[in-house]
């Protein structure tokens, strides 16, 4: 167990799709330092490619 570990108030989020972005935003709003690591040159992931989303057919952006 890591009870004697000096904990760090930062979280690394691996993957900058909609899931990683949402996790990063929630962590940041809670007061953690967030490192968002994305494999490609820009975050956005698969959702950035979607034209509209179901069922409201809102714009995915």
């Amino acid at each position: 167990m890591s009870s004697n570990v000096e904990k760090i108030g930062a979280v690394m989020v691996v993957g900058g799709g909609i899931t990683g972005i949402q996790a990063s935003l929630d962590l940041a709003e809670q007061g953690y330092m967030v490192y968002l690591i994305e494999n490609s040159p820009a975050i956005g992931g698969a959702m950035a490619q979607l034209d509209k989303t179901f069922p409201t057919l809102d714009c995915a952006m």
Binding site: S2, I21, S24, V34, I37, I43
Partner: peptide, 27 residues
């Protein structure tokens, strides 16, 4: 796309994890 605006989110794009050391709480 608002994550670009938070000062406590650092986006490191074009990147991957190479190695992990340490333990839970202090990686």
């Amino acid at each position: 796309m608002e994550s670009g605006r938070y000062s406590n989110i650092k986006i490191i794009a074009n990147a991957k994890i190479e190695s992990l050391k340490g333990q839970a709480g202090n990686y």
